[in-house]
């Protein structure tokens, strides 16, 4: 494909869809690892230590992930602005609910909410993690008592009710985002057909419920086991 292929409306759709699909795979693996904190703190510690110290994860997958996140958000804003320019004078009376769902029309709102959550999430976990490992130079993953720190840090964070509420709200919006985003991405890359569209819709609905509500359950588990 030439460079100019991606500078078309379909090219933008494809790039948006591919970055979205990549982020959905990331979400799934993040949920699997976080779920370990509920069933086995030891396994969670081991998985977290592996992910946090493995050079392949840290210096290849992590930068790719950060690029994917930034790219998806920048493209989202870019496309939203571009689309707004295509109708500068709106209808006096419009009834969009008659023909389309709220999540499909408001991806920018659910996306901005998820972006705001990511800022909190980075401050909560990612920045302290990077600071400990690459500024303080402590790659051991251990606390003073010789135990792994990962489960302890996660469990402690969810002691605060405002944080838990913020997480729950953000994941509800993530659910709405995925509800449209999952099946939409398969349509954009041309995989969806009349025969498969309903299957993508059903799988997407399951994904959009299971993944965000899985994260909510984990946050609630850690909160409730401390109160």
């Amino acid at each position: 494909m030439s460079k100019s292929t991606f500078y078309t409306s379909i090219g933008y759709k494809i790039l948006m869809a591919l970055s979205g699909l990549f982020l959905m795979v990331f979400l799934l693996q993040h949920l699997v690892i976080n779920s370990l904190s509920v069933v086995s703190p030891e396994s969670f510690n081991e998985a977290s230590h592996f992910m946090g110290t493995n050079p392949l994860v840290q210096f290849l997958l992590q930068p790719v992930l950060i690029f994917g996140v930034v790219f998806h958000f920048i493209m989202g804003f870019f496309l939203d602005l571009r689309n707004r320019k295509s109708r500068t004078f709106n209808y006096a009376y419009n009834k969009p609910s008659a023909n389309s769902s709220w999540p499909s029309r408001n991806m920018i709102i659910s996306g901005i909410t998820v972006l705001a959550f990511l800022a909190i999430h980075f401050i909560d976990f990612w920045i302290p993690e990077i600071s400990t490992k690459y500024i303080a130079g402590d790659m051991s993953g251990l606390m003073n008592d010789g135990e792994f720190r990962y489960y302890h840090e996660l469990h402690e964070k969810f002691n605060a009710l405002p944080r838990v509420i913020a997480y729950v709200i953000a994941f509800v919006f993530l659910s709405l985002h995925l509800l449209h985003g999952f099946q939409s991405s398969f349509q954009s890359v041309g995989v969806s057909t009349n025969k498969t569209r309903s299957s993508f819709y059903k799988i997407g609905t399951i994904f959009a419920i299971v993944v965000p509500f899985g994260f909510i359950t984990i946050a609630l588990f850690h909160f409730l086991t401390q109160h």
Partner: peptide, 16 residues
């Protein structure tokens, strides 16, 4: 694209 139409975001309103 040249005519200034927007991007499809798969809302499905057109089909309905």
């Amino acid at each position: 694209d040249e005519e200034g139409f927007g991007n499809c975001t798969n809302t499905g309103a057109c089909e309905v």
